[in-house]
Simulated scan of single mutants.
Amino acid sequence: MAVYDFKVNNYKDEEVGLDEYKGKVLLIVNTATKCGFTPQYDELQDLYEKYNSQGFEILDFPCNQFGAQAPGSNEEIHSFCDAKFGITFPMFSKIEVNGDEAHPLYKYLVEQKGFNGFDEGHELTSVLNEMLGKADPDFAKKPSIKWNFTKFLVDREGNVVARFEPTDNMGIVDEKVRELL
């Protein structure tokens, strides 16, 4: 089993096989348009522009599971991201990333790389830890997606090699992408 074995729908609800991305380095991200981390779209677009010509793709999966912060239709989300951030990387249909209705791709991703905690130096880490801890005191022991803008890095062979939480510095993400290219 590899990332390439999954099929997803693009934001126009057309089926896409992830085998279209064979041989590329991928960053798979669950996103939201009304989140405190939404400005990361700027950094993601910068990363995409920097490395796309070298075989790098970002696959954007809007998700409304965390604070209902991805409202709207696929088309509305796409239009917002285009207008506000000039996003040019592929955007897919809104999905669920946790629970019984989680997309099989995300079930696979969290099996490959579980949660290792938030960056203690980030200003929102204490807020996330407190909020998630109230809902589930054992949240940190579970591999599930904790919030919007969790990122999975996939090498050119389709192996999930790293997971980055929304609190992780994008400079670290850039460094890991560069190593794989």
Score class of each variant (00 low, 15 high):
E43Q: 15
P90N: 12
W147C: 04
D138P: 08
E49I: 02
L59P: 13
K84Q: 14
E49H: 00
N74Q: 14
P137V: 09
F37T: 07
L105Q: 09
A70M: 10
G117W: 08
E43G: 14
F66V: 13
Q65Y: 03
D100C: 03
G36V: 11
F115A: 13
K134H: 06
K134P: 01
C35I: 10
F92N: 10
L124H: 02
M91R: 15
Y51H: 12
L47F: 07
C35Q: 09
M91G: 05
V154M: 11
L132V: 06
V29L: 06
I95M: 01
I77F: 08
K113E: 10
F139Y: 15
K107W: 01
V16A: 11
E75I: 12
Q112H: 11
G114F: 09
S93V: 06
D119M: 02
I95D: 00
T33F: 07
K142Q: 09
K50V: 00
Q112S: 12
N74S: 14
P137Y: 08
V97S: 01
V16T: 10
E101W: 04
H78G: 07
P143I: 05
L44H: 08
N148A: 04
D119V: 04
K22E: 12
K146M: 02
F85T: 03
A135W: 02
N52L: 00
P62M: 04
G36T: 10
F80L: 13
H103T: 09
G133Q: 00
E57Y: 06
D119A: 06
A102E: 06
Y41S: 06
S73T: 15
P143A: 04
S79D: 14
G86M: 09
L44K: 06
E123Y: 13
G133I: 00
G72C: 08
M131I: 09
F66C: 09
T31Y: 10
Y108V: 13
F149M: 12
H122R: 03
D136K: 02
Y41T: 11
K151D: 05
E43M: 09
Q65R: 00
F66R: 14
F115D: 13
I58W: 09
Y21L: 01
K134N: 08
F118T: 01
S144N: 15
T150S: 14
E111L: 07
G17N: 11
G99Q: 04
E43S: 14
D60Y: 08
E57H: 05
I145K: 01
N129L: 03
F118C: 02
E101H: 05
Q65D: 00
L109I: 10
F118Y: 11
F118I: 05
I28T: 07
F80V: 05
